[in-house]
Design a protein around this nucleic acid. Structure first.
Lengths: 257, 257
DNA sequence: TAGTGGTCTAGACCACCGC
DNA sequence: CGGTGGTCTAGACCACTAG
């Protein structure tokens, strides 16, 4: 690794140090999961103060390249294996086979998954959801809030909203909605599903999301806002999902005409 | 705005300051585009050293909440109007009308857009693309690399790859591929388009991407890797797009069966 | 020129980790 | 315990922006 700062360059010292570390990582000199030199080492190597070194390291952490472990050291982040959200995961044949959507994806990867239910019950609909669901602002909907995990790793937080008129008295309002998930229950309630739309955005996490998803700093989240429509074009469910960006690839298929 | 640090709490001072500013923003006390108190102000208000204040501010910049302008101040970031990538933007009817895909989206918003072509010509295919395109590693493809802008704001960098056997001698290899974009040219060359797949991921930008897209720190990018197939299921083009995350909503429509 | 953010130093103390 | 990262102070100088 380069260990000199060019005093002529007008690039700040901390950025030069960050460059040197970034290069060492991309050249393979320091591999994924390996430790970068300690702050004390870097202070000696580059002959700078601690603040300058910390500035360099915090830049690389914000970029998502490094991860710090208090008392142990700073390490190159390793990318865990990715999961796919296949665009066919809402097919009726899967529901008929008793599989919920996330089961389709997880099974395709042989991944053991868990679901933690935070809350299931009627509540006031958030304004943004009311608009998509086509219900009056302030009306009551069934709220299902839960977290998905792969082994010990939380991967996504999801909240579903169903008009209370559809959900009332069904298994949707139970902790476990039964085989095929809530979409199977919605169809049983007489609302045959016609299509889904998904709106995908990405941003940095809110502090509470970072906590719930165990996000290291420098990891963005993807947000998928999915609306389910029946065959009459009436919205019957909205699902708001926030997922760790580097654990997912969202795959979609589009017709040419 | 709160201006006191709880000395009993074990939450670090810089995080308490960040919390106070975050609260002031979310309560509307400081609106989008408005200036937050200067470093000197915050030093006085909270009775801390400059380093502590800077720590708080850089946290909020990494979160994407604030944006600093050297010599002027630190401001609450304003979210510009979002653009939609409609899932129908590859319809043949649009191509027949002479519209390229990005034109469909931009027109829908009444946005003036520009394209800057970086490079058009034959080159060696990157390994990752070769796999998707189904061509041998190391073979030659047409590479079209360009940047899209809305007014002065760069929004996305896109690179298309077409097997040289398809592209050779056509207008695809020109700077301006003509009406309907390269998909129209691909169809003219006898490859009727059957479907597209898009794989969406999000991450923090590489330094060169941050530069090319004028990204403020704390802004992630979305990456869309699109593959176009002809009606025989043969891949005819791959497009690798990196876009400023907070300027886009990707919209998709999924059938229920 | 005064006020702003950007960089850097030197030194201190703390909290966490592993031996 | 020694080594690691985390927080904080006090003060300095620089670069940019505006009046």
């Amino acid at each position: 690794m380069r260990t000199a700062i060019d005093p002529i360059s007008d690039r700040p010292a901390y950025k030069q140090i960050a460059d040197a570390i970034r290069d060492a990582v991309s050249s393979g000199e320091i591999g994924p999961g390996e430790k970068v030199p300690s702050e004390a080492d870097l202070i000696r190597l580059f002959n700078v103060a601690q603040g300058t070194v910390r500035n360099a390291l915090s830049l690389l952490r914000a970029e998502g390249l490094l991860r710090a472990e208090h008392g142990k050291g700073v390490f190159v982040r390793e990318r865990p294996p990715m999961q796919r959200k296949a665009s066919n995961r809402f097919r009726r044949s899967h529901r008929d086979a008793g599989k919920a959507a996330y089961t389709v994806d997880a099974e395709a990867l042989g991944i053991k998954h868990d679901v933690e239910v935070f809350k299931v019950g009627p509540d006031v609909v958030p304004d943004e959801i009311a608009e998509r669901l086509g219900v009056p602002v302030g009306s009551t909907v069934l709220v299902r809030s839960r977290r998905y995990l792969h082994g010990p790793t939380p991967t996504e937080i999801a909240t579903s909203y169903v008009p209370w008129s559809i959900a009332e008295g069904t298994a949707m309002a139970e902790e476990n909605p039964g085989p095929g998930g809530i979409y199977a229950r919605i169809e049983e309630a007489g609302h045959r599903l016609g299509k889904f739309t998904e709106d995908v955005t990405a941003r940095m996490p809110m502090p509470d999301e970072a906590k719930a998803l165990h996000l290291p700093s420098g990891t963005p989240v993807m947000r998928v806002l999915r609306t389910a429509y029946d065959t009459n074009g009436v919205a019957v469910e909205v699902c708001d999902t926030v997922m760790t960006a580097d654990l997912f690839v969202l795959s979609y298929e589009l017709p040419a005409d």
